[in-house]
Design a protein around this nucleic acid. Structure first.
Length: 423
RNA sequence: GGAGAGGUGGCUGAGUGGUCGAAAGCGGCGGUCUCGAAAACCGUUAACCCCGUAAGGGGUUCCAGGGUUCGAAUCCCUGCCUCUCCGCCA
């Protein structure tokens, strides 16, 4: 959420940012409603001031056994006007909040301006796509043949886009989760957490999934809980409505969770194999930091995610997202795209974003920079480290042999009972 | 699922309709004393919003949302959460 005062003071800046992000918020309308709100508020507060004063008088008069009937009658009328104004104020604040929650975050000045992913900037490459003397097979063929995934029965159980990992496939999933968590906790200093996989509406709103992305969420029929689309949601919200001490920052968390996404609007796209599924595993990093450090922290979190790909020996490239390709809440974002030999293309396996104070303001999370100072909003960041299915795709496709087996990356072998090859 | 108790400031905890943003203690901060520290003593101690260049003024907040009343931390209703006991259960 943007600060209404900031919008009031910098309407053109805000409009320009929204334009760059190809958003559609009506700032003039918001400012108009804000003006109405303050008018009513001013009047209401004057009425309340009067009531407070006279009510105090009444108390004194009663104590002195004087007659206060006239004052009580007058205040009765004032009370009615106050109720009316309060109702008006409630309505208008609800309206204003509803609109503010739909205003996207503004892109950072270092975010390239452009409409969509075509305008993204490739920042760097790491490693080389493997050279193969044969035509590499897609992961769905290899995984099925090696008994790692039962696509048909996964679909039978829950529908298309749901995966049944079997045998060594299931174990590879677990191995990757443990490997990633171990690297981030022991080498990168993150605290491991295991959050709820379902959250309430307030939590979903705090990070920006609601109200805008409602269609993409799985919602329980009791209407109070949602399945998380990413661990970002519960983790970033851990300190919602709290005031932290400045010396506690930065806070670094990492978690494994499943992620649930309806992928509404993506039907028919990337339907084969593991590329786009409704439930997947992910290890996610979150950093809650002091504002002045957040863009440096973005470089760190991106490097943390890259470390995983490097240790797995998977070639990738880093893209700086263009303004129009940024998510609703992000100010700046690097995507990590891993090479998949069988698909013959790059796949997004990680998104590392800086949200500025956008999420912190939505969830009312603050910190006190120093003893005695006013609390301010920290900046929040998150990065996948990594999303599992596409990492699995890259391992299967890039490490495949001519006879249809898969070489296990060295760092994973201890997690797979020492196995060097999947056959 | 059944029965009961409770949710007050950074913490403990008092407060059952009137000058209560809220006693007291602890903690924090500042000061006196001291070479310094401790102790003691004195003072201080929230968040948010509106008007204002500022000084300052005003308002809101005692889990949340409604209601009663001239006036609510205090009374009523609803919801959420916590604790205890019983039942069920991984």
């Amino acid at each position: 959420m943007l600060d209404i005062k900031f919008i009031r003071d910098n309407p053109d800046l805000v409009k320009d940012g929204i334009r760059k992000k190809y958003g559609d918020a009506d700032i003039d309308h918001i400012l108009d409603v804000d003006r109405q709100r303050r008018e009513i508020l001013t009047e209401l507060e004057q009425l309340r001031e009067r009531r407070n004063k006279v009510s105090g008088d009444i108390a004194v008069m009663k104590k002195n056994k004087e007659d206060a009937a006239a004052q009580i009658a007058a205040m009765k009328e004032v009370g009615q006007t106050i109720s009316q104004r309060e109702q008006q104020l409630r309505n208008i604040e609800e309206k204003l909040d509803g609109m503010l929650l739909l205003v996207p975050n503004l892109p950072h000045e270092s975010t390239p301006v452009g409409k969509d992913e075509a305008a993204n900037v490739i920042v760097r490459h790491w490693g080389e796509p493997p050279q193969m003397a044969f035509k590499p097979a897609p992961h769905w063929e290899l995984a099925a043949k090696l008994g790692m995934i039962d696509f048909e029965r996964g679909a039978k159980l829950a529908g298309s886009g749901f995966i049944l990992y079997t045998g060594v496939g299931a174990r590879l999933e677990r191995a990757l989760i443990n490997f990633m968590l171990d690297v981030h906790t022991s080498r990168h200093g993150y605290i491991e957490v295991s959050p709820p996989f379902m959250v309430n509406r307030q939590t979903m709103t705090g990070t920006g999934q609601l109200p805008k992305m409602h269609e993409d969420m799985y919602q329980l029929s009791d209407e109070t809980l949602y399945l998380i689309p990413t661990a970002e949601v519960p983790i970033t919200n851990i300190y919602a409505n709290e005031i932290l001490n400045g010396d506690e920052l930065p806070k670094l968390f990492v978690a494994y969770t499943p992620c649930f996404r309806r992928e509404a609007g993506a039907a028919g796209k990337d339907t084969r194999g593991l590329i786009r599924v409704h439930q997947f595993d992910k290890v996610e990093m979150v950093r809650i930091v002091r504002p002045e450090t957040s863009y440096n922290e973005l470089e760190i979190i991106t490097a943390n995610a890259e470390t995983i790909l490097q240790l797995l020996g998977l070639s990738y490239r880093v893209c700086l997202l263009a303004s129009g390709d940024l998510s609703f809440a992000a100010a700046k974002c690097f995507d990590l795209e891993v090479w998949a030999a069988g698909l013959d293309k790059y796949l997004e396996v990680s998104s590392c974003s800086n949200f500025g104070d956008f999420q912190a303001r939505r969830m009312n999370m603050r910190f006190r920079p120093a003893e005695g100072e006013k609390p301010i909003y920290p900046h929040t960041l998150n990065g996948s480290g990594l999303a599992l299915p596409r990492t699995v795709i890259a391992i299967i496709e890039n490490y495949q042999t001519a006879d249809g087996k898969i070489v296990v990356p060295e760092v994973l072998r201890p997690y797979l009972g020492g196995a060097e090859i999947i056959e």
